[in-house]
């Protein structure tokens, strides 16, 4: 066993771990941060993405001992202390940026990382920026819209266009090829 000290979502934990313990398993099983999920266990899907010292990593591909003395932010730590959702959480909710929701924690953490480097990304930059995250429902259209919307909100642009810009991005208006249920509702 190796002793590690890790700050997770603002709280410092001192724990004994086996060197082979993956960070994701440490977070879920020892710290109780089950909001961070294991999707593939093969480093492909990105569902387990967390911020390690401020940058996105796949926590299934980091050993817990590598996070010793580091700061980890999980999906459970991105909302404000009073419970106000992070703009990306709100955008995924409002724009239906999820179907089954399993990829969502990783998508949001990867998007936080992307928007830090690219506050005003193009659609292509978003798609490339979250290429390490897979949505097996293939719900990418609304995920991209949610990231665009949050980017606008975080940089103070979205509201300046008034309600029209919100409406143009609402789930009811997405193109029908991407979201057939919109046709049914129409």
């Amino acid at each position: 066993m190796t002793q590690i000290s890790v700050r997770v979502d603002g709280v410092t934990y001192a724990d004994d771990v086996e060197p082979r313990t993956l960070l994701v398993n440490y977070l879920r099983e020892q710290v109780g941060k089950v909001g961070t999920v294991v999707g593939c266990d093969t480093s492909n899907c990105g569902a387990c993405t967390v911020l390690l010292d401020g940058v996105a990593v796949k926590s299934c591909t980091v050993l817990a001992v590598q996070a010793d003395e580091a700061e980890v932010t999980t999906i459970e730590g991105v909302a404000a202390p009073d419970g106000t959702l992070h703009p990306l959480q709100r955008a995924f909710h409002e724009l239906h940026g999820l179907q089954c929701g399993f990829c969502t924690p990783g998508m949001i953490m990867a998007s936080i990382d992307l928007l830090r480097d690219h506050p005003d990304p193009s659609e292509t930059e978003i798609r490339e920026g979250i290429e390490g995250n897979l949505c097996r429902c293939t719900g990418y259209q609304n995920i991209v819209r949610a990231v665009q919307h949050a980017a606008g909100e975080m940089s103070g642009r979205a509201r300046s266009d008034g309600p029209a810009s919100d409406r143009s991005a609402s789930p009811a208006d997405v193109d029908t090829a991407a979201a057939p249920h919109a046709v049914v509702r129409a």
Binding site: V55, K58, V62, A110, G129, G132
Partner: peptide, 9 residues
């Protein structure tokens, strides 16, 4: 190379 997460590590 790979994706943003992998390029960070």
């Amino acid at each position: 190379v790979a994706d943003r997460q992998t390029r960070h590590r």
